[in-house]
């Protein structure tokens, strides 16, 4: 019997702490599979964020950092400048990357820092209990937007991929989703490209992954991935926003 789908070497055996149906686990697996397939497990250094994926350093079986909130791109910059021949990636959520860490991600991208960022956008703060994120959809109810996000007072969903793709330092920017197998396959392809771009020394690469948060959205997992497809995808169009040859 040939193994069609197995357990990636680049993941430790530790079970994820994520809630049932949280798609962080899918994204972790895709990143690990890509590291395996590129044969870079022993060359890779990852940087975990603050947020639900704070414990990512326990799951990836590569050298890891735990960064302060939003600063993963700065930490990754420090690492990459010391080890320009290694592969450095950050794994960050939307509060981490698109709120407190906006300065760090924009400048890492603008410097053309040769790192790969996996940006998990689930439109909410998970770890702290479901508060409004900069990526929360218009009208979406959260614990700090109990009447739905009002653009008059809370602004608009922030479009990180679009923003970063206009910077000259970014080499690869894509937005993908993991709500069904077809999209998961595309997501993996984009993540692989984002690592290859770094290996080839082209510049900064980021993949924004639309992700479901059943617990804080108040939905069953099956319902949550459907909600993602129906509501998040129209606000956050999928596709490759930038690819430097």
């Amino acid at each position: 019997m040939k193994l069609v789908a197995g357990y990636p070497d680049s993941l430790t055996e530790k079970p994820f702490h994520y809630c049932p149906g949280c798609t962080h686990g899918i994204i972790h697996r895709l990143v690990a599979e890509v590291i395996d397939e590129l044969g870079i497990r022993e060359e890779t250094i990852g940087v975990a964020p603050v947020g639900c994926s704070v414990l990512a350093y326990e799951y990836f079986d590569v050298d890891m950092f735990e960064a302060s909130h939003g600063r993963a791109p700065a930490v990754a910059t420090g690492v990459k400048r010391v080890h320009p021949d290694k592969i450095v990636f950050t794994y960050q959520g939307d509060g981490d990357l698109a709120s407190i860490g906006t300065a760090e991600i924009i400048h890492a991208a603008n410097r053309g820092e040769k790192i790969t960022t996996i940006f998990v956008n689930n439109a909410i703060y998970g770890m702290t209990g479901g508060q409004m994120a900069p990526t929360t959809l218009v009208g979406q109810k959260t614990t700090t937007s109990p009447f739905g996000r009002d653009t008059n007072t809370a602004g608009h969903p922030i479009k990180i991929s679009e923003m970063l793709s206009v910077l000259d330092g970014s080499a690869y920017i894509a937005r993908v989703s993991v709500h069904d197998p077809k999209h998961i396959r595309q997501a993996k392809k984009a993540i692989k490209k984002a690592f290859q771009v770094q290996i080839e020394g082209k510049g900064f690469a980021l993949v924004e992954v639309l992700s479901a948060c059943p617990t804080n959205w108040g939905m069953a997992p099956v319902e949550a991935v459907k909600w993602l497809a129906d509501n998040m995808v129209p606000t956050y169009p999928l596709g490759e926003f930038k690819e430097v040859e």
Partner: peptide, 26 residues
Amino acid sequence: GVFLQAESEVAASNMVYGAAGAGARV
């Protein structure tokens, strides 16, 4: 060596964290 003018002191100190963790004198 590498000189990097960061976007802020906050970022600079976290770059130091990265470089120090990567094993360098920084």
